[in-house]
Every structure is written in structure tokens, then in C-alpha cells.
Simulated scan of single mutants.
Amino acid sequence: MLKTRVTHLELTDRPTQSVPTPVSFKLAIMRATRISLPFYRFLYEQVGKPHHWSVHRHLDDKALAAIIHRDNVDIHVLYADGSPAGFFELVTGEEEGVTEILYFGLIPEFQGRGLARFFLNEAISTAWMSDPQKVIIETNTLDSPRALQMYQRMGFHPVSFAEAEIEAWV
């Protein structure tokens, strides 16, 4: 087990800044309606394995489908030059007036190439489309060391912290 510090953040005002689209790639962001389980597992592993994401890792197909195919779950995939480069997963209505960016990240080969801030801006903009009172996200010390700073630069404010133990992804 790995010990980590979890930071819970929220954004209570719709952002007014925009992030320009990077020109170094041909980009597309597509909503994955009823995403196939193998493709979801691929994205979850590619993005999450370096950070030891574990919540959906051991679920069987029926349990995973019951979570990700709910009407209040919205998954969007970033493609760069035709290849999957990352994804974000939004959950609305679990708490009144709240949209959660449950998962957000890039596949390692696409990190450090100017895509994260742009893609996060798109995730935030999409989250606000459900007209919430606030958008929430969390990160921990096993995520990218730049994640917390990027979230704060994009307007999120830390609201609480917790200690957690996470199963290592080996």
C-alpha cells in the first residue's frame, strides 16, 4: 500500500479565461457515448497506472458498466493526430448542484507537450455545461507533481485534505 495526501478542490465561479488550442497536433475531443469496456479499461490503465488509480481497476465488466454507463456519467476522449491521448470523466448530480471531474489525465507519451492545460480547460468548460453551483476535483501526491498547481492556476481552490492508502499498481 502507498500512502498519499489527497487534496479536494472546488471551483465556484465559471472561468472567464480561455486556453488556446495547441497547434502542434491535430486535436479532437469526442464524447464517448456508452464507451466500450475494453477501451475504457485501456484509457484508465494508460492514464492511471503511473499514478496508481485503483477505484475501477478490479471491477468486473458488470460492475464497471453499471458505473460508467449511468446517465449522469460523461466521458470525453482527447485524440492527438488520431491517437487517444487522454480522457476525462464527469459525474453530475451525485451531490445537489455539483459536477465532479472524477478522472482527468493524459497518456504518458502526450504529457509535457502542451496539452494538459488546454484539455483541463475543456473539461472545466464541459463541466459547467450542466450549470452546477460548483465543480469539484481531487488530486493526490501520487498524481503528476504539477497537477495541484495546474488545478489552482485554472481557478480551483483547496477545500480539504485527507490521508489515504492506495494499492500500488505493479
Rank of each mutant, 00 (worst) to 15 (best):
Tyr44Gly: 10
Phe119Asp: 09
Arg34Asp: 15
Leu90Gln: 02
Asp71His: 11
Ser18His: 10
His51Thr: 10
Thr21Asp: 08
Arg117His: 08
Gly82Thr: 06
Ile137His: 04
Phe87Pro: 08
Leu90Ile: 05
Glu163Cys: 00
Phe156His: 05
Met129Thr: 15
Ser24Asn: 14
Phe156Ala: 07
Asp81Cys: 10
Val170Ala: 12
Ser125Asp: 02
Gly114Leu: 03
Lys3Cys: 01
Thr126Leu: 06
Arg70Pro: 05
Val47Trp: 03
Thr126Gln: 15
Val55Lys: 09
Asp61Gln: 11
Ala127Asp: 04
Thr4Gln: 13
Leu120Met: 15
Asn121His: 13
Ala116Trp: 06
Arg113Trp: 03
Asp71Gln: 15
Leu27Phe: 09
Phe25His: 13
His56Glu: 07
Lys3Trp: 03
Gly112Lys: 08
Tyr79Val: 02
Phe104His: 02
Arg70Trp: 00
Glu95Met: 06
Leu64Cys: 08
Gln152Lys: 15
Gln46Leu: 02
Trp169Pro: 01
Val19Ser: 02
Ala65Asn: 02
Gln17Cys: 09
Leu11Asn: 02
Leu37Ser: 08
Tyr103Asn: 15
Ile166Tyr: 08
Arg31Thr: 09
Ala32Leu: 14
Asp74Phe: 14
Ile137Tyr: 04
Ala164Thr: 09
Leu106Trp: 07
Ile75Cys: 10
Phe87Ile: 06
Lys26Phe: 05
Phe119Glu: 09
Leu11Gly: 07
Ile107Val: 15
Gly86His: 11
Asp81Ile: 12
Gly86Arg: 10
Thr139Met: 05
Leu106Arg: 02
Ser144His: 12
Ile29Asn: 11
Tyr79Cys: 00
Trp53Thr: 05
Ala116Gly: 15
Glu10Gly: 00
Ala162Cys: 01
Gln111His: 03
Phe39His: 13
Lys49Trp: 01
Lys3Ser: 11
